[in-house]
Design a protein around this nucleic acid. Structure first.
Lengths: 362, 362
DNA sequence: CTGTTAGCGCCTTCAC
DNA sequence: GTGAAGGCGCTAACAG
């Protein structure tokens, strides 16, 4: 009862949190017994167990995750590394990851790289220092160098969307080749022969490389060559810039554009509409991701749907499985089906623009 | 040189990370000296300092953030608590928070509450166990009970968007009353007299209460009453449902709708277009947030812009300031200006729907 | 300027 | 079943 003996009141500042020792003293038992009572790793006399648990709640005891982490070498924390958390499907992926993590008493730290190597490396430094239990990378958000570091430190990781060709790992995504083929088939079937691919940067992303390669290949199979391939980036503005380059002062602009993602596609749409083109009559546009804005009534973007949320869930599940079973599982690939959502931005090519283009040719 | 003495190779599994002791032994100095050389808290002989730093990089030493956290009672981790990370401005806020955090070697853990008290409490439990350095809450994402717990544990926190009336705290946001007044003035000026408010739930959010109260009040000042106030929720589908209830089989539907956020507004837009209404001729719609889809050419939603990214930055900055200066600063409120972005979903009310409605009345 | 000691809070031997 | 001792990796206090 002597207030001076109460370690939680040494001075007026920062009330110390109650520790396992406090509970032990309070119950007249050893700290290890409290630990056993709470974690249940070793049997404890039911009576004392009850007393301890009661005391713990009475005193408001909560074990320190930090002390535990130091001892157990587990932090109950995973990282989600992405280029830009607010781009296309990232938010939904994050939601999925977080949901599964929470169900496993695990937290998610977010890391935006902005496609910047230094930023990315800094994040990895911090994550390694913190001994996060695992990492999920979204799309092309990690350079080989840093992937290697994770591998060396034996930090489990799962990649979503982008697969490093050299480094096999757990992976969640769709088959980009099949996707591109579906898109091109659709446009081909509508009668398009002048197709362009826009957005992304192949240098920073093997997914983009894969898409572009497949795009070229499928066209080649049909005896065509791309009207244009513009690697302008992933954001709306990048798509807009691509649209401008595609449509301004070009003798034979494409009649259809395949974009690296929805954001870029919407940028192209914007550029086209600003130039007085009708979509889809004058220009067909296909996006990729089926992000929220694509579905809006007045947008009605034709697009390839990826189940972002489910992919986030799957990635987190994969990751957490690894944390529980020490022997490293052999890499597993979960391939979700992709689905072409045909809305109002694709149709047979009109003639207005086509004729204009022809009349410009000598 | 004897491999058996190398503690990092005890057995084949999990290569131990090199500790401060390893560096100390390697250099023939005490661990505390290594600590001082690296943190620079106390002076170290330049020569030995150099040797230690060199050894540290050679051995690949990186201090354990966990051990540091246990000792220093700082985790270099903050939490961002939000109802739904993928809703309206949350992703942009998160980006802002993360950017500032990283610049301070700090990580951000994300917590989605889904407006669920249990989920929220679970998150707070875990965050408290982890001794996060601080918390940022976005919109109406924390119940009073949990705010109180943060307060009791003396965890610094900043609120974005929602201000608890009873509990003063650091706050970042806009003035909702001014915002609503601006919106209603705009509609009033266009000639609208039948206005509805839709979306949100006043019970779960003081912001919504504030908006609705102001909405009613401004109308009252003009001698009007709301045509409808539908608290249906925050998501696109909630807006869609509200739109349906507003427009189906109602004698006098509103000529203008004020939505709680852009997502809900887009839902109303969808419902209106599906019913063959023209927007804005038959129905004006005003959103809130200026989220990405609102700006799209074919959407052109009139909306109130909040600087989401800047608000995230500001919140994180406020938070980190608190971590550096022990004496708790008195609560500061950073109020950003809001801005009405007038696009194509608002115009003087047309007569087509108006007349139809009148003709239905006896 | 540097080394020794102690302890942050917990869990895991090892004795009893 | 339970208690005592030791240590996870680091830094603050105290000697020298």
């Amino acid at each position: 009862m002597d207030r001076h003996d109460d370690p939680s009141r040494v001075n007026g500042a920062a009330p110390e949190r109650v520790t396992i020792q406090d509970v032990a003293r309070y119950c007249g038992v050893a700290a290890s017994t409290v630990s056993n009572a709470i974690t249940g790793r070793r049997p404890v006399q039911p009576a004392t167990r009850e007393r301890i648990l009661q005391a713990a709640t009475d005193l408001g005891y909560r074990p320190s995750a930090i002390a535990r982490a130091l001892r157990l070498r587990r932090t109950w924390t995973v990282a989600l590394i992405t280029a830009n958390l607010s781009v296309s499907l990232a938010p939904e992926v994050a939601r999925g990851v977080e949901e599964v993590a929470l169900a496993n008493s695990c937290h998610v730290v977010i890391c935006n790289t902005d496609f910047d190597l230094d930023r990315e490396t800094l994040h990895i430094d911090l994550l390694l220092d913190k001994r996060v239990d695992g990492v999920i990378t979204l799309a092309s958000s990690l350079h080989d160098h840093n992937i290697t570091r994770l591998r060396e430190e034996q930090v489990p990781f799962v990649q979503i969307g982008r697969r490093h060709v050299e480094i096999d790992s757990h992976f969640v995504g769709i088959d980009n080749r099949v996707g591109i083929r579906t898109v091109v088939d659709h446009l081909w079937g509508l009668g398009h022969r002048r197709l362009a691919f826009i957005g992304g940067t192949a240098a920073s992303s093997s997914v983009v490389r894969e898409k572009i390669d497949t795009f070229r290949q499928v066209l080649t199979e049909r005896g065509l060559a791309p009207t244009a391939v513009l690697e302008t980036g992933f954001a709306f503005q990048d798509g807009y810039r691509a649209g401008a380059r595609l449509l301004d002062g070009v003798a034979s602009p494409p009649t259809a554009v395949v974009a690296v993602n929805d954001d870029a596609a919407l940028g192209v749409l914007e550029a086209a509409l600003e130039r007085g083109l009708r979509v889809p009559e004058d220009l067909s546009i296909v996006g990729w991701d089926d992000s929220f804005p694509a579905s809006l009534h007045r947008v009605r973007l034709t697009t390839l749907r990826q189940p972002a949320y489910q992919m986030g869930r799957a990635a987190a599940t994969l990751l957490l499985e690894q944390l529980q079973t020490p022997p490293p599982l052999e890499p597993r690939h979960i391939i979700f089906p992709s689905q072409l959502i045909i809305r109002h931005t694709t149709a047979p090519p009109g003639t207005s623009r086509e004729q204009r283009a022809l009349s410009n040719e000598p």
